[in-house]
């Protein structure tokens, strides 16, 4: 029983980590209507920036973390300036295709710059797990989960209650309508990418803290994808619920079903949940239902 509860808690915490990475998808979508396929690559770039500022440049954590976030934001801004600004006014299809191109472009760049070598990642959150009676809770995931919930609450408030947030929401509904209302689509998309890159870096810190860093860690992007779709691409608060559900189901599958069938069903179960939910609710749990006119 203790193990069972423990699996549920760990699963929920991993789910919150997925939710944090998925928040990168949602924030970019909520401010620009672009689905960013290269999210996992942003996580890796964030990871390499953190690695560079701490272990290569030798800065203390208090200095390197803000610096890394700043640098990551700059990288996000740069990507947006080089690739996406030019496509405003083009179909959303081209923008999404550009992010597909970015997915392999950024991976190639990371490989060229850093190579396939395995690197240590600085310990940002304490490695020692927290013991609650017989239960064992990984502390880094716990702190990460708290960060996720705080970030979700903050961003949710920002996008739904404040004027700049509502402006971006308008951009997510329709570029043309938004710009004819006097909203700058350009700055909204730029902000989205800066925020997306920063969130990815935070995700990288929680995910990789004390582990090793290679370019393969970008798989977290595709692990988080089902969470984003399950919640619906427009809902930030919904990510928490979706992440927790997917995390728990995945953890239980890995621990109880996989030994029986002798395979890693745990890695595809999020996709199966996602497909099932999309068939019942085509825009996810909390996504917008848009009315289409011709």
């Amino acid at each position: 029983m203790v193990y069972f509860v423990n699996d549920i808690i760990t699963g929920a915490l991993i789910g919150l980590l997925y939710a944090l990475v998925a928040m990168g998808f949602v924030v970019i979508y909520r401010a620009s209507k672009v689905f960013n396929f290269a999210q996992g690559e942003l996580v890796i770039i964030g990871g390499f920036i953190v690695w560079f500022t701490t272990l290569q440049a030798g800065l203390s954590l208090w200095l390197s973390i803000p610096l890394s976030l700043l640098l990551a934001g700059f990288v996000g801004y740069l990507i947006e300036r080089i690739f996406l600004t030019k496509l405003i006014g083009e179909s959303v299809f081209s923008m999404v295709m550009v992010t597909v191109g970015l997915l392999i472009l950024l991976r190639g760049f990371v490989l060229l710059l850093f190579g396939p070598a395995v690197r240590p990642f600085p310990v940002i959150f304490p490695l020692k797990p927290l013991f609650l009676g017989d239960m064992l809770i990984p502390l880094n995931l716990l702190i990460g989960g708290i960060i996720t919930i705080v970030a979700a609450a903050g961003l949710s408030w920002f996008f739904n209650r404040t004027r700049p947030g509502l402006r971006m929401t308008a951009v997510a509904e329709d570029h043309v309508v938004a710009s004819s209302m006097g909203i700058s689509v350009k700055s909204s998309i730029a902000f989205a990418w800066v925020l997306g890159a920063i969130l990815s870096t935070v995700g990288a810190m929680i995910f990789l803290s004390g582990k090793s860093l290679t370019f393969l860690a970008s798989d977290i992007g595709f692990a988080a994808l089902p969470v984003a779709l399950f919640a619906g691409l427009e809902s930030i608060g919904g990510l928490i619920l979706a992440g927790v559900i997917i995390g728990i189901v995945q953890s239980l599958t890995t621990n109880y079903l996989d030994p029986v069938i002798g395979g890693s069903l745990g890695s595809v179960v999020p996709y199966i949940i996602m497909l099932a939910i999309l068939l019942i609710r085509p825009t996810g749990l909390f996504g917008w239902r848009t009315i289409e006119r011709v």
Binding site: F83, G101, I104, L105, G108, L111, L112, G115, P116
Partner: peptide
């Protein structure tokens, strides 16, 4: 110093760049 993965990495950079460039310049 770039190592043996340059073929795969270069392929990704060039093809990713080609997709992005074509979408921007010649969709």
């Amino acid at each position: 110093f770039v190592g043996g993965d340059i073929v795969f990495a270069g392929m990704n950079v060039i093809l990713g760049g080609v997709i992005a460039l074509f979408m921007i310049l010649e969709p």
